[in-house]
Amino acid sequence: MTIEGLLIILLKIIGAVIIAFLGVILGLFYKGIDRKLAAKMQARVGPPIRQPFMDFFKLMIKENIVPENAVPWIFNGVPVMTLVATITILFYLPIGNISPLLSGYGDIVLIIYLLTLPAIGMVVGGFASGSPYANVGAQREMVMMMSYELPLVTTVIAIGWKLSQVYPQLNVFSLAVINAHPIWGLVGPLGFVGALLLLITLAIVTPGELSKIPFDVPEAETELAGGLLVEYSGRNLALFSLADAVKTIVMVSLTVALFFPYNIAHLFDLSGIFAIGIDSLFFLVKLLLIMFVEVTFIRVAAARLKIDQVSYAYWVPLSIIGLLGLSLIVLDTIMI
């Protein structure tokens, strides 16, 4: 390997550490805002915004119980794997007008694969717990994974296909390319409706990916007492809570990159560090608004579905909506 190659790796490592740190802090902060907003909508006072930070530190000093039926090395290893896999996705996502840290080293297809790793981690952890509740939770998580993949992939494929028609010379699955060419500007009226349907599809896949109400069947506190997390405590549970916070940022950032990659620095004739600053702030505002719609609002407005209802919802109505969106975009392209 050349010196240049080593230098690139060193810079990427420094960048990765900074982004991982910021991703975790932002995830916990937004989790606090989410809980506060949900409480306000339910006419409760709610916890302070710093509550997720306090929960994390409290969990770190609590006993880390490994049940006698568990497979200890898997049981202890899975929280680490889940958090690491979730954090790595952040490196492939753009932030404001800053290209992804690993831009050129992985595309959106890789992100879709990486998104399955935290879910697989939860499943393995559930099975390794040796508890019937965790076992049922893990089985439900598997069924969920099998259900929301088709609508999620439909959304990505539709945008990639449209970009390939307009810019055949570009790497259409690259997040940097998708981020630079918003779908809304590439389509006519029919395609606009199609893109809107795809946005709705992704907005409903997001709470499923995050196991939030109405798709929180793998955890289902009232029936499974926490499901696949029922036997987890202490520092293992603390790592799962971090992974949950970071995954929220990942999924919401994915929505921003696919549908709302707009920046505002050019409106104020800003450049350089000021442009990066204002676009990053705008990115944070977009994250907050989209998180409110995709996570907070949906979980306050809806009740938990049963697992067969979840599977049906993703496989039938939502897949049809996604495929309809894709068809409209294809039709729009053919007719132009």
């Binding site: 990765a16 550490v17 969990l59 770190m60 880390n64 680490v80």
Partner: peptide
């Protein structure tokens, strides 16, 4: 690149995990 960042982030996460209480 993916394996390198996984190794780096894993070492940080394991360090944080080791700071937590391990007894029961």
């Amino acid at each position: 690149i993916w394996v390198v960042v996984v190794l780096v982030i894993s070492s940080i996460v394991i360090y944080i995990r080791n700071k937590g209480e391990e007894s029961y």
